[in-house]
């Protein structure tokens, strides 16, 4: 079985600094593998363990994304394909079309996995776009995934229901983090990851931009928070009484 896993080298939101003018300092910000992508890599490795084959990691991003790809390779993936592009200026559809082109070039694949959304922008658009572009079945928010012969059986976790679906291979699926517990690579695996094949493709050469107007970010500013930050002191009984009093005064607690 050939398994493709798409991962994103995303700005670590916990480390992101804001300048004195209230603008996020994106250039030079620390990036790492988008949090939920580890679950997609883990699920790819789990499928490989059950069905043999190989796991290929795909990323669209700057050259620095190799760090994230090496982390996926250290977890156990076999090789990586990096499509270089300036991810600060492209939209979800352009990202998906670059991934689709790279996956087609290295294909065919039986299963293509993504996480439900990236930790930086959390659009959740690239996985279904990929399904459309590859002409493959797509199913999102998988919390369980099994392949039997040429059919994938997926439990989808929706807001208020659980849905079981079946789809023919090839299938593109996005996974939720409940699907598994990602492994930690060992020191030896981390050292060996540097020796695994990592191909680099230029995005513009791989796939020229499509004939549509891309969605764009016009400006970014820090979220304004106007919280009161009142710390209530005293014994548990005193503090609790003061809190309840304050909440009633705020009009958010009925007596």
């Amino acid at each position: 079985m050939r398994i493709a896993v798409c991962v994103k080298h995303a700005v670590d939101e916990t480390e992101l600094k804001i300048d004195s003018g209230g603008k996020p300092l994106l250039s030079g910000a620390t990036s790492r593998m988008s949090t939920f992508d580890k679950n997609a890599v883990e699920e790819g490795l789990r499928l490989k363990a059950a069905h043999q084959g190989e796991v290929v990691i795909f990323t669209v991003g700057p050259s620095d994304s190799k760090k994230t790809m090496k982390e996926a390779l250290a977890m156990g993936a076999d090789k990586g394909v990096l499509v270089t592009a300036d991810t600060t200026s492209i939209d979800t559809m352009r990202t998906a079309s670059l991934l689709a082109a790279a996956i087609k070039k290295a294909g065919p694949f039986d299963v293509v996995l993504c996480s439900e959304g990236s930790s930086d922008t959390y659009s959740g658009q690239v996985p279904p776009m990929l399904g459309e572009m590859l002409g493959a079945a797509f199913t999102g928010y998988a919390r369980k995934l099994e392949v039997n012969g040429q059919t994938a059986r997926v439990e989808r976790s929706l807001e208020d229901s659980l849905e079981v679906v079946e789809a023919p291979l090839p299938v593109v699926a996005s996974v939720v983090s409940e699907i598994n517990e990602p492994r930690y690579p060992t020191l030896i695996q981390i050292m060996q990851a540097g020796k695994k094949p990592l191909e680099e493709l230029n995005g513009d050469q791989l796939q020229p931009a499509g004939a549509y107007r891309q969605a764009s970010v016009v400006s970014m500013s820090a979220q304004q928070s106007a919280r009161k930050h009142v710390m209530i002191e005293g014994s548990p009984d005193e503090a609790a009484a003061k809190l309840v009093e304050a909440l009633i005064r705020e009009g958010v607690l009925s007596k």
């Binding site: 939101e13 992101l16 996020p24 969605a215 970010v217 400006s219 970014m220 979220q223």
Partner: peptide, 13 residues
């Protein structure tokens, strides 16, 4: 929202 709500982005298409 972007970056888990740390940033607000104005977007257009």
């Amino acid at each position: 929202n972007a970056f888990a709500g740390k940033v607000v982005a104005k977007v257009s298409c």
